[in-house]
């Protein structure tokens, strides 16, 4: 299955891209996908990064074909 992964803030800086299409195999939860995406990146506090699946922050969701994934570092609005 294919998903679009969007990167923001320090995650986009670490990946050096703002988004990419990823080919995934097998059943995967959001938290597992987050770990897979962050592996190898130089991010000090990986636990502070949240994953959104179709704009939903529940990381127990199972990823489906066509999902829009976003990796979100700590919020800093205001």
């Amino acid at each position: 299955m294919k998903v679009t992964v969007k990167y923001f803030g320090l995650v986009a800086e670490a990946t050096e891209k703002s988004e990419e299409v990823m080919e995934l195999k097998g059943e995967l939860t959001a938290i597992a996908l987050k770990e897979q995406c962050l592996k190898g990146l130089t991010i000090t506090d990986k636990d502070s990064v949240q994953i959104a699946v179709n704009q939903n922050l529940d990381d127990s969701i199972t990823i489906k074909d066509g999902d829009e994934i976003a990796l979100l570092p700590p919020f800093a609005g205001g």
Binding site: F8, G9, L10, S48, A52, A70, L72, P73, P74, F75, A76, G77, G78
Partner: peptide, 21 residues
């Protein structure tokens, strides 16, 4: 707390750090 907005704090020497609320 809830809105996905990210802030890059830029210093005078053009280096930066990421703001955390």
């Amino acid at each position: 707390a809830k809105v996905p907005v990210f802030g890059k704090e830029i210093f005078e020497d053009e280096t930066h750090q990421w703001k955390v609320n």
